[in-house]
């Protein structure tokens, strides 16, 4: 049984005047020990989807519909106490900004030990020993000393490692990562990506990694889900999605990347226009106004998921046309 099952998830923000459907009908599954990357631009609903898994979207200002099951538990039905136990022990989250997770007035050792003691009910000494082991595991140099440090005394990369250690302190089964490397320098980012991959293998974690960077997704993911305007427009095994993309948006993203192989002075292929206003979406496919393959039907009919390969789906009415765009690679 998959550890994460999302069926027809809808999250609507109702804070301001017009309700904004940030996520409209997302279906996702993540197996144990698997890493799923959710790839999307700002406003695609990727972070909102991730937060829905831990019920972190503001309760008063947003409405959540559909089913979200994590490790057999219905997240929407959890009571207050169950939710607290669920957060941390079943699923843990790491953020782009470690300051969201780390308390500035306690040392890192105190914070991790506290979390371990609350969740496992063990003694302070045992908890500190666990914290030390975790610091060693996330490769923080001189871990004994760093356990006594406050978050502001550490560099960005070290803080990020400390946050990962905190997230892993209660041995969760699912790690949710919300762009944890976006604010980091390139040389530090790759260290964290490699670390996440190692930890995932070692602890048998399921990981959902939200990112806007295709390169990051390629580095960490087993499967990729591409989101656009609150929907998963394409999902499949990472290699398939990158090598044989079938949704015009994914194709556009891959083509518009500036990369080393491009000739100097060449023009980048672009996706015209800008992401749509979520409060005012067109009736059909939300990508149709920017799509180079769009037909009149696309503007009126919302596409459902079309199977385009083993475990590979694209929400597009023109998957036949995108198949023709594939480089001549033999099937399989």
């Amino acid at each position: 049984m998959p550890i994460v099952e999302i069926k027809d998830l809808r999250v609507t923000f109702t804070g301001g005047g017009k309700p904004v459907p940030a996520v409209s009908g997302v279906d996702l599954e993540v197996e144990r020990g698997e890493t799923l990357a959710i790839l999307g631009e700002s406003g695609s609903g990727k972070s909102v989807t991730l937060r829905a898994l831990m019920r972190l979207n503001p309760e008063g200002k947003s409405r959540m519909e559909g089913t979200v099951r994590v490790a057999g538990q219905d997240v929407a039905a959890l009571g207050r106490r169950e939710l607290r136990a669920f957060r941390g022990r079943t699923a843990a989250m790491i953020f782009q900004e470690p300051s969201l997770a780390l308390d500035p007035v306690y040392t890192l050792g105190q914070q991790i030990a506290e979390a371990v003691m609350v969740h496992d009910g063990c003694s302070r000494n045992e908890a500190m020993a666990r914290a030390l082991a975790l610091f060693e595991r996330v490769r923080i140099p001189s871990p004994e000393r760093r356990l006594q440090a406050y978050p502001h005394e550490m560099s960005g990369g070290m803080r990020q490692r400390a946050m990962i250690a905190l997230a892993l302190s209660c041995r969760p089964q699912l790690l949710l990562a919300d762009e944890p490397t976006t604010a980091l320098d390139a040389t530090v980012q790759i260290q964290i990506l490699v670390l996440v991959r190692e930890l995932q293998r070692e602890f048998g974690l399921a990981v959902i990694f939200v990112t806007h960077d295709i390169g990051v997704a390629v580095e960490v993911a087993d499967r990729i889900a591409v989101m656009y305007a609150g929907r998963v427009v394409e999902s499949g095994p990472m290699r398939e999605v990158i090598r044989r993309p079938r949704h015009p948006y994914t194709i556009g993203l891959l083509r518009s990347r500036a990369h080393g192989a491009l000739a100097k002075g060449a023009r980048l292929e672009t996706i015209p226009g800008a992401p749509p206003d979520l409060a005012d979406l067109p009736p059909g496919c939300p990508f149709a106004p920017r799509c180079f393959l769009a037909t009149a039907t696309c503007a009126t009919t919302a596409p459902g998921p079309e199977p385009v390969g083993a475990g590979h789906q694209a929400r597009c009415l023109r998957v036949d046309a995108t198949a023709a765009l594939l480089p001549a690679v033999a099937e399989g």
Binding site: A186, Q189, I190, L193, D213, V216, V218, R239, I242, H259
Partner: peptide, 8 residues
């Protein structure tokens, strides 16, 4: 250090 774009 730049993320690889090659799945392999």
């Amino acid at each position: 250090s730049m993320p690889s774009m090659d799945p392999d």
